[in-house]
Design a protein around this nucleic acid. Structure first.
Length: 615
DNA sequence: GACCACACCCACACACCAA
DNA sequence: ATTGGTGTGTGGGTGTGGT
């Protein structure tokens, strides 16, 4: 902008400034304030004055029920030395009614979000070049966790590593995808829990990349065909022909060979069995594929289309584009639009009305305080806004609050660095509101958080609960039952236990330090390797509400008992009066509310038990 | 103007949950 | 126990702006 040479463009012939209005919240306000002033123009601070004088409002986005023009006008006007008309830059030519969300609100919200985002991100980002060292580091990290190599989350967490400072998750991911993936060549062999498998001499085992699965598998045409065929056969074998061939009107009989798919009954157990035979997807995924795709497309239709397509050059294609869920950004825009709407109503309310309303509400809510009608003069603007918001309705606000909560949680989770072997959410977040959202303290991520591999010293069992509740449908839940009281010692330990004595308990406790919330299976497996029977592990989890801290406590008492010759098995299995350790009797008391009998449990133990039992 | 770092998008695989 | 609704974040991109 060479305004040293060019005379002030934003003035009229008489030299008086051209006047504009820019809403105080507009993200580009500061930028254009400067540009316009530098070129001799004027920005009216008051909306009322601007309206009175019909000053042009410039905006980053269309504002419902106001006439606004794009900042591009200023850019072009200055660029072309003033030979530009205003009209084409108008953002929202249509005046609309005040009620009901419409597309424009949503568009506005989107544009606003985008504009705000730019502002929030601050001045133009500088970029950091990837070094050879960083590249190699990324590759090695991918090799260590091959299943996560397509995960956004994985790279987001990877970006926290010191070696990758200055890069974002996005950039590390795209660096890998665009420049490193073809250099990967091999990955390390890992077990079902994504832990490295070492060979006999303790070395990592290299594996061709193609052998390493990722987290999710796309459904192939063959998958879809097998699914459709199997379901058709299944219903033919399990349901009567008449039902299957009856049309929706319940009267007409369909021609032979045509089945009414609306009458198909396909139980969950079918998908369990099917997933056992077809291991590429979980039972839940197969069921979902059936619900969202096969049933929509038509199973018989897909079967026939597949067979037909076998003869073509292209070959059969998997089903696609049959889901129609609102995209996330769409949803967000809807919510933002609602908020805007609420704000708009507030802005539309005259100052006088706002004052009356505030006064009115204040009388109702604080009637003991005897306010006169000058009350509103004592309210600050935030107070008036809050009061007006009440008039707008709680709905939009509720969503706002919900979103704030969620983003707080997000932030808290984000603070959990990759090196932090285990999740520790700040205390102030572990409150009833957070619990009400169904978020476990430890339940933060689909992938294991300790990508950095920082070792844990085993003293922070605080709050880690394995993610299985006694009454859930988790396959591990069925093992989590009390043993009978007359059980024999031999039912608790296998021969291996003798082999590993006397260190078994300590090794078991050590193992606890490595667990993640989803590692119930790991715990079962590893404890069995140490010589615990599965039934006993289940019993321990039942007694301890599957909380790692209490499992640790239990192992202590178990160790002491084992060192005592005169072992009282019942006392070991059903410890009385121990905080965090539960028995069937105590469960009963908890359900019945006989809290006086549970005095030795602290509130944390009781809370954990409630959650564990689904009370 | 090509290349790169980084942001953003969206269908859907997989999962969980309430009714 | 089924069932449909829906949350989550992957998997595979495209868009954008700096260098």
């Amino acid at each position: 902008m060479s305004d040293m040479i060019v005379p002030n463009l934003l003035t009229d012939e008489s030299g008086s400034p051209m006047a504009f209005y820019i809403h105080a919240q507009d993200p580009l306000r500061e930028k254009y304030l400067k540009i316009i002033r530098d070129n001799g123009g004027y920005i009216e601070p008051s909306e009322v004055n601007a309206d009175k004088n019909q000053y042009v409002q410039l905006s980053s986005y269309p504002v419902p029920r106001r006439t606004t023009f794009s900042f591009q006008f200023i850019d072009d006007y200055l660029d072309k030395g003033g030979s530009v008309y205003l009209e084409p830059y108008q953002l929202n030519p249509v005046k609309r009614s005040a009620d009901e969300l419409d597309e424009q609100d949503v568009r506005t919200a989107k544009a606003m979000a985008q504009a705000m985002n730019k502002k929030a991100k601050g001045p133009p980002k500088s970029t950091t070049k990837f070094t050879v060292e960083a590249d190699n580091y990324i590759l090695e990290q991918v090799r260590l966790k091959p299943r996560f190599r397509t995960s956004h989350k994985f790279f987001e967490e990877l970006a926290q590593h010191d070696l990758l400072k200055g890069h974002t998750g996005n950039s590390v991911r795209s660096r890998y995808r665009a420049h490193l993936e073809h250099k990967l060549l091999y990955v390390y062999k890992t077990d079902d829990y994504d832990r490295l498998i070492l060979d006999a001499s303790g070395n990592r085992i290299a594996l061709p990349v193609a052998h390493a699965k990722t987290i999710k598998n796309r459904f192939t045409a063959d998958d879809d065909y097998t699914l459709c065929e199997s379901i058709i056969n299944h219903v033919l074998n399990t349901q009567d022909r008449e039902t299957l061939q009856t049309a929706d009107d319940k009267l007409t009989r369909l021609p032979d060979g045509v089945l009414n798919e609306a009458n198909f009954l396909v139980s969950i157990s079918f998908f369990d069995e099917f997933a056992r035979q077809n291991t590429g997807h979980s039972s839940l995924s197969w069921r979902d594929r059936y619900r969202k795709f096969a049933r929509v497309y038509g199973l018989q239709r897909y079967r026939d289309d597949y067979r037909k397509a076998m003869g073509t050059k292209e070959g059969p294609q998997p089903m696609k584009n049959l889901t129609s869920r609102e995209s996330k950004s769409e949803k967000k825009a809807q919510i933002t639009a609602k908020k805007l709407k609420a704000n708009q109503v507030r802005m539309d309310m005259s100052a006088h009305d706002q004052a009356l309303l505030a006064d009115e509400l204040a009388r109702n809510h604080h009637s003991q305080l005897h306010h006169n009608h000058h009350l509103t003069h004592q309210l600050d603007s935030a107070g008036v806004a809050a009061v007006a918001n009440m008039a707008v309705g709680q709905g939009a606000l509720d969503e706002e609050i919900g979103e704030v909560k969620n983003s707080n949680i997000d932030d808290a989770l984000r603070q959990v660095g990759v090196g932090a072997g285990r999740v520790q959410i700040e205390d102030d977040l572990v409150n009833p509101d957070v619990r009400a959202l169904g978020i476990h303290q430890t339940d933060h991520s689909a992938i294991h958080p300790n990508l950095g591999g920082a070792s844990v010293d085993g003293h922070d069992f605080e709050g880690l609960e394995l993610k299985v509740d006694a009454d859930s449908q988790d396959p591990w839940a069925k093992y989590m039952v009390y043993l009978p009281r007359d059980v024999l010692l031999t039912a608790l330990f296998s021969d291996k236990f003798i082999q590993f004595e006397p260190n078994v308990i300590d090794r078991a406790r050590e193992l606890l330090t490595t667990l993640e919330p989803d590692d119930v299976g790991v715990l079962f497996d590893e404890f069995e390797k140490l010589g615990f029977t599965r039934a006993f592990v289940g019993h321990i989890l039942k007694v301890t509400s599957s909380s790692v801290r209490y499992i640790n406590d239990y192992l202590y008492t178990l160790r002491d008992a084992l060192h005592d010759d005169r072992i009282d098995l019942v006392e070991v299995l059903f410890p009385r009066g121990h905080n965090g350790l539960w028995t069937p009797e105590q469960d009963f008391d908890l359900k019945e509310g006989n809290m006086q009998k549970l005095g030795f449990h602290d509130s944390e133990s009781i809370g954990a038990r409630r959650q564990f039992l689904g009370l």
